[in-house]
Amino acid sequence: MVQGCEDLQAEPGLPHAPRVSYRMTEAAVVLAEPGTLAVFGFGAGAPSVDDPRWLRVEQEPFDAPTPLELWQVEADVIHGRDGDLNWSSGGGWLFAAIEPDEREHGGPVGAARYAYERLRHFVGGRAEHQVLRIWNYIGAINHGDGDQERYKQFCEGRAHGQGDFFAEGYPAATAIGHHGAEHHLQVYLLACTHAGERVENPRQVSAWHYPRQYGRTSPGFARAMTLPAQDVLAISGTAAVVGHASAHVGDLEAQLNETLTNLAALLASADMPAGFDTHSPLKAYVRHPADAPRVREILQQRLPGVPVLMLHGDVCRSELLVELDGWRYA
């Protein structure tokens, strides 16, 4: 039994959500624990670990030492590799990750297409075929003008690669720029044997309905996803977007406050309790390192006691300075 999971009251037959936490320890320690589905280290200082459940994320942390992110389930876990795709599963849950090199796939469009084709075919053949949450970390995400911006090209490749896999509705997702090698794309996901419930924000236009100014292919993601047992909300990357427009351009504090307002709206839409607590970990992606202390100060004031991992990441719109994502446990 994973510590804390016995407190969650799932409906009979529905899998308990993974317990996500941040922990100051060595990768080998948590990989040896029962129920470990995935472990994430952050930045160039994270070690190389030969285990399919381990991923070194190309996001540089602002704090040192940096905790690991740990996903644990209430079941035995098996893991393996399918070519260049790593995976693990247990308790009705699946972690899968792929890291294509754009140079081998003709650029960002081809790499995104390849990543999503591989994930679609692999996950589609599994019992855990309900994709609930995806993370996309993209090098130099805002480079390029107009439709040649790398994020817009990623969106085109993703749409081609996923085909009709999400015809019934998109998963929750994050797409953030990293400062590692530009050609290195990272995509990983959480899937389940059971479907979740998609949540939209009434303050925002759904991403797949964005107007043409945001690219030939609209982003495809839900604003959040309630996991099958209705005990956890998986929150997509959330920034200062109202309607479809970026708000408070150039004003860090106003953008962060707008982002927190959007998070509150998501919790209300999902019928989740207001606010966050010590069991609901978040990530803050900050574009400019000089802004990190102020972001940390505001979050400590507005979300006291909430674990927040501060990372140097570029939001998919160049005018946006900060983005939050994470988990809300009931």
Results as ranks from 00 to 15, higher is better:
V2E: 02
G4E: 06
E6L: 13
E11V: 12
P18W: 00
A32E: 13
P34K: 12
A38K: 08
G43V: 00
D50N: 15
D50W: 08
P52K: 06
W54H: 05
E58N: 13
Q59D: 02
P67E: 00
L68I: 06
E69I: 02
L70S: 03
A75V: 04
V77T: 06
R81A: 10
R81N: 09
L85K: 08
N86P: 03
W87T: 02
G90V: 01
G92R: 02
E102Q: 15
E102G: 04
R103H: 13
E104A: 14
H105N: 09
G107W: 13
A115T: 09
Y116T: 00
E117H: 13
L119A: 10
L119F: 08
F122A: 11
V123K: 11
R133Y: 15
W135H: 11
N136F: 02
Y137W: 12
A140M: 04
D145R: 12
E149P: 05
R150H: 06
E156K: 13
F166K: 06
A172Q: 06
T174E: 10
E182N: 12
V187F: 09
L190V: 07
V199H: 03
V199I: 15
S206P: 11
R212T: 05
G215W: 01
T226S: 12
G237M: 07
V241L: 12
S246A: 13
H248A: 15
G250Y: 08
G250F: 09
E253V: 12
Q255A: 10
N262L: 08
L263N: 03
G275Y: 08
G275F: 06
H279N: 09
H279E: 07
S280K: 07
L282R: 01
L282K: 05
I298A: 13
R302E: 11
V306Q: 10
H312C: 08
C316G: 05
V322E: 03
W327N: 02
R328D: 01
Y329P: 06
